[in-house]
């Protein structure tokens, strides 16, 4: 059929959950197959990079790219798909916001290598060998993609037309996006598939006064399934998170973790959640306030769980004030370009 749509699915720095999410649309996947030819989908279909390279530009109708961008290879694939596609959709929290991989932006590359290749208890690396971009062997040079200093959102690397947030996006959203594409009824460019408001707005739990006398982690108490979790002292990101997920986590008596990113009009999800969490503290006694705030362990991890690459401050500094890049690293970057 000549006028079938052409889709590509690709994964960058991600866990594979987004791939499963596509399959989770169950029998609707058959509609997708009837609707579109899939030209690239490493998890399920055996087309290779060179097949894509050989296509004419803008040949693919829609590329769905998930994952953050951490390596030069991922950037290369994103750029290739961008060239070959009419529309690019940032699929899932990592591509839209940086996602969990971008929590690594609170560390520098050196710290990450140190941890992964030296410090972890399961590592046995007495010679302190780190992966190199180039390794010279008698048989020739071996190359690895460059590991960037920073994990990037997809739209920091290539132009993105639409966003499907979520960890992973829900089957309903995926179906809605595919239907919109097929029916040629796409929203204006830059749109996010998801609600405009917050998860709290969609959440059916009983909400009274937000006054908290102690924060608990979810495994420490059995929460009342009817009442607002934040009012029970459980850190819930619902007030700083876009809706459209159908409050799936709340329905399972688990707090919102923020995977849809900030709602419309909020620049920094972490800052918004910080504001909420600190002001629900129910005390006007400075000592007690301090004790309660101290119960929030690892604020960065809670506040930016899915959106660290989208934070206003963007990346951790080393040695307060100094930039993180050493001269030697910079020359390594030049090599990779």
């Amino acid at each position: 059929m000549a006028d079938k749509l052409k889709f590509a699915f690709y994964w960058n720095a991600s866990c594979g959950g987004c791939e499963i999410a596509v399959l989770d649309i169950h029998e609707k996947i058959l509609d997708v197959a009837a609707l579109a030819d899939i030209l690239l989908w490493p998890v399920a279909v055996d087309f290779k990079k060179h097949h894509i390279r050989d296509l004419p530009d803008k040949h693919i109708d829609v590329s769905f790219i998930n994952g953050g961008t951490r390596t030069s290879e991922q950037r290369e694939m994103a750029e290739l798909l961008r060239r070959k596609s009419k529309v690019v959709v940032a699929f899932g929290a990592c591509a839209s916001l940086g996602g969990i991989p971008s929590l690594a932006n609170f560390h520098n590359r050196e710290e990450i290598f140190q941890r992964a290749y030296i410090e972890t208890p399961s590592t046995d690396n007495p010679k302190g060998i780190f992966p190199q971009v180039k390794t010279a062997l008698p048989e020739g040079d071996l190359e690895l993609p460059l590991f960037f200093n920073h994990v990037y959102r997809l739209d920091q690397v290539i132009a993105v037309d639409y966003y499907l947030p979520g960890c992973p996006p829900t089957p309903d959203m995926i179906a809605a996006a595919v239907t919109a594409i097929a029916g040629n009824s796409l929203p204006p460019a830059g749109a996010v598939f998801g609600g405009p408001s917050t998860v709290c707005d969609s959440c059916k739990r009983v909400k009274q006064e937000k006054k908290v006398k102690g924060f608990h982690r979810i495994h420490e108490i059995i929460p009342d399934p009817e009442r607002c979790l934040l009012e029970q002292g459980i850190i819930c990101a619902g007030s700083a998170t876009r809706d459209g997920c159908g409050t799936l986590c709340l329905n399972a008596n688990m707090p919102c973790r923020g995977c849809f990113g900030p709602p419309d009009g909020v620049a920094d999800q972490g800052a918004k959640l910080l504001s909420v969490l600190s002001t629900v503290v129910d005390s006007n006694d400075f000592g007690e306030i301090e004790k309660l705030i101290d119960q929030i362990a690892d604020p960065a991890g809670y506040l930016y769980r899915f959106a660290a690459a989208s934070s206003l401050l963007k990346h951790k500094l080393t040695g307060d004030g100094k930039s993180t890049v050493q001269a030697a690293e910079r020359s390594q970057l030049e090599v990779a370009k």
Binding site: F106, G270, L274, S275, L277, S278, T279, V281, I289, E290, I293, I296, D298, P299, A300, L303, S311, L313, H315, K316, L317, T318, G319, D320
Partner: peptide
């Protein structure tokens, strides 16, 4: 209250 939590967050950004 916000100040206290911000003061715990900022060092995580270095």
């Amino acid at each position: 209250k916000r100040t206290l939590l911000l003061k715990r967050l900022l060092p995580q950004f270095g």
